[in-house]
Simulated scan of single mutants.
Amino acid sequence: MPEDRTPDADDAAAAAKKDAPARRTPGKGAGGRQATPAGKGLGKGAGASGKGAGSRPGGKGGRTRPQQAAVAKPKPWGLIAAAVAVVVFAGAVIGYAVYAVNKSNADRITAADQIQGVQAFDYAAGQQHVTENVSYEENPPVGGPHDPYWADCTGTVYDIDIRHENAVHSLEHGAVWITYDPDVLSQDDVDTLAGIVQGNSGLMLSPYAGLATASDLGTPISLESWNHRLGVDSVDDPRIQQYVDFFTYGTDEDGTSLYPEVGASCQNPEFAANPLPAEASSEPIGSSDAPTTDSAAPATGSSTEPTATTAP
């Protein structure tokens, strides 16, 4: 017969059972699952996961993206070649400029006797002004008494043999007078001389009758300045330009002026428009700069032997 229990006894038994420790089977965890030794689960879980993700860094889904090979940029050889060409060209230009300046200085005339064949004379400065015709010792003349009205010498090209007394006055003002024999020179030769003269202050050109045969030079071309003269045979003679460059308003190497009236004008447009021919008498044409006398002493000058220190 079942044992009778009181309610109080049943409640005490239930409480005792509840407070008793749970019985566990060794080697198993909660719910009857066997406990995993320390580290073993990690080797398969976290470790395995690390093997998949960590063994291929940067990979997606465990795959590694192939690396791209670095490609070197090509050098701009075209630009380099162009830069080198510019530098070479600039060097050539500078080198030629230096050469040209040095050559120009080396060829520069600094004294009258550096021009081969130049004749020098000794007419005093301030020769008198006269209205009569003068018999000059040199032909063409280079100094002495002269007309009070000078011939225009502003790069003037005359087509007649102008009056010599007016031309000598222009030499006194620093001009170079180029004369030529019209019976010897061709028109092309005359044009070449005109190209040297035309428009250049301090120069004038005119024919000179009988220059090649009747003058004391015996050349078809002659260049005159105060106290100096040069005869040449050809318009291609480089001494023509040398003479023009040195004697037009010229000074010597020490700075001494080669003509008497420094600063005097070459302008006389009235004479340029109506030039007096060689055999004409004196006429008051245009400008005058000094008192005149009715007659003149013979125009004489002492010449030296032609110098020859520069090759033609």
Results as ranks from 00 to 15, higher is better:
182 P>R: 05
192 T>A: 13
88 V>G: 10
258 L>I: 15
286 G>P: 06
169 H>R: 14
77 W>V: 09
203 L>M: 05
292 T>R: 07
47 G>W: 11
4 D>R: 14
272 A>W: 11
286 G>T: 13
222 S>H: 09
199 G>I: 07
74 P>H: 11
148 P>W: 12
312 P>A: 12
177 W>F: 00
283 E>D: 04
255 G>D: 06
79 L>T: 13
77 W>F: 11
227 N>T: 13
61 G>I: 00
223 L>C: 00
209 A>V: 14
149 Y>I: 14
164 H>A: 14
297 A>C: 07
84 V>Q: 09
168 V>G: 08
215 S>D: 00
45 G>V: 09
68 Q>T: 11
235 V>N: 03
283 E>I: 09
194 A>N: 01
16 A>V: 06
224 E>I: 07
122 D>G: 04
188 D>E: 07
254 D>G: 10
295 S>K: 09
302 S>M: 09
148 P>L: 06
278 A>S: 13
91 G>P: 04
165 E>F: 09
109 I>G: 04
110 T>Q: 13
217 L>V: 10
108 R>N: 12
146 H>Q: 07
303 S>H: 00
260 P>V: 13
205 L>D: 00
6 T>W: 11
228 H>T: 11
137 E>F: 14
51 K>D: 07
15 A>L: 14
179 T>K: 01
301 G>M: 03
237 D>C: 04
59 G>P: 09
236 D>M: 07
16 A>P: 02
231 G>E: 00
149 Y>L: 07
195 G>T: 05
222 S>L: 06
271 F>R: 03
220 P>I: 02
279 E>M: 05
197 V>M: 01
127 Q>M: 08
166 N>D: 07
229 R>I: 00
59 G>K: 08
200 N>M: 05
255 G>S: 05
234 S>L: 14
21 P>W: 14
214 A>C: 04
213 T>V: 08
162 I>H: 01
25 T>H: 03
291 P>A: 15
51 K>P: 02
207 P>W: 04
148 P>Q: 10
48 A>T: 12
173 H>D: 02
197 V>I: 11
261 E>N: 13
47 G>Y: 05
40 K>V: 12
238 P>R: 02
294 D>Y: 05
207 P>I: 12
74 P>C: 15
104 S>W: 10
90 A>G: 08
243 Y>K: 01
32 G>W: 07
37 P>I: 13
68 Q>G: 05
194 A>W: 00
221 I>G: 01
219 T>R: 00
248 T>F: 06
296 A>V: 03
275 P>A: 03
143 G>L: 02
224 E>W: 03
216 D>Y: 15
176 V>P: 00
161 D>M: 13
266 C>H: 14
124 A>K: 08
88 V>Q: 03
115 I>W: 03
242 Q>N: 02
211 L>M: 11
213 T>F: 02
178 I>A: 01
192 T>Q: 05
144 G>M: 07
129 H>N: 06
130 V>K: 00
240 I>D: 00
285 I>Y: 01
128 Q>W: 02
237 D>T: 03
252 D>M: 02
7 P>M: 12
41 G>P: 07
57 P>S: 09
310 T>R: 10
17 K>A: 11
4 D>F: 10
23 R>H: 15
290 A>V: 12
10 D>Y: 15
57 P>Y: 06
26 P>N: 08
26 P>A: 14
